[in-house]
């Protein structure tokens, strides 16, 4: 009985801390939405008004009309889906190869893979652009898609490898002795128990592609191909920024991500409930 009450107090403290932290973490969202509903006159006032005096819902209409919202949304969704699929398919294969298969040059190649991340990206922009330009891919989606279908990038591979490496070798060995092919082991045994890791990688990929700004900016010369993150820039002019409209568009842009994340994180933890007691 006494034990139980101590436990309850502990839980209460944990919840109290979480609620307090949540308030801090919720400020940006609250503030973003609040600004998105302000009139032009209220945006620039000091001290800051946390709640607008009248809620200007028409800001959302104006924000959506400021650039071809639906077209850019469609482009963004397309890129996000195709890149996430590519990253999951090829990235997991590569990471598994680095984690569990034995081949010559593996350690060296992995070291190189990690090392590539250390070069500050700004100096690679122009050389990379020149490669795509020589291939004739500039002004198409190819520079924004192909890398995802070729392993997905060093970060993804590194992350998945770290997950795969902690899988027990015994299950893989056992399957090999049973005569299963490597591909079958990978798809039938490794992938199903790696759902949390794959979901994590999906979250990062979806987020990255959804918010990616620099790639679409430099590779796409036709505004019909542009994405939401470029559209957002039209609210910032040289000397003035329409903060209210920018925040309205930002809110619309982040809502799908918040919803997707809410369901995906559930999946990560649910994976636990199902797996509980295994191996």
């Amino acid at each position: 009985m006494r034990n139980l009450s101590i436990r309850n107090i502990k839980i209460a403290i944990v919840y109290a801390v979480l609620v307090l932290l949540s308030i801090i973490f919720l400020i940006p969202l609250f503030w973003m939405i609040s600004t998105s509903l302000k009139s032009d006159e209220e945006v620039m006032t000091a001290p800051i008004k946390w709640v607008p005096s009248t809620l200007r819902w028409d800001n959302y209409v104006k924000a959506v009309e400021a650039f071809p919202f639906l077209l850019y949304l469609r482009n963004t969704v397309f890129l996000t889906i195709i890149n996430t699929i590519g990253t999951l398919l090829t990235g997991s294969l590569v990471a598994y190869s680095f984690a569990k298969l034995k081949w010559k040059g593996k350690r060296l190649l992995f070291a190189i893979t990690i090392a590539t991340m250390f070069i500050p990206g700004h100096v690679l922009v122009i050389p990379t652009y020149i490669v795509y330009s020589k291939l004739g891919w500039v002004n198409t989606y190819l520079p924004l898609i192909i890398p995802s279908w070729l392993g997905g990038g060093a970060f993804t591979i590194f992350l998945l490898r770290q997950f795969f490496i902690s899988l027990p070798d015994e299950i893989i060995e056992a399957a090999r002795l049973d005569g299963a092919s490597e591909l079958a082991i990978f798809t039938k045994i490794v992938l199903p128990i790696s759902v949390p890791a794959l979901v994590t990688v999906s979250i990062f990929t979806v987020l990255f592609v959804w918010n990616d700004f620099f790639g679409p900016l430099i590779y796409l010369h036709k505004s019909e191909l542009w994405t939401l993150s470029i559209g957002l820039r039209s609210f910032q002019q040289r000397y003035t920024t329409h903060w209210n409209l920018l925040m309205a568009a930002s809110t619309l842009m982040s809502l799908p991500m918040i919803v997707i994340y809410f369901f995906l994180q559930d999946k990560i933890v649910k994976g636990f409930a199902l797996k509980g007691g295994s191996h």
Binding site: F25, P28, M32, T35, Q236, S250, I258
Partner: peptide, 10 residues
């Protein structure tokens, strides 16, 4: 996770 989701500029 929210701060990671929201666009950088806001």
């Amino acid at each position: 996770f929210l701060p990671v989701v929201l666009p950088v500029v806001p």
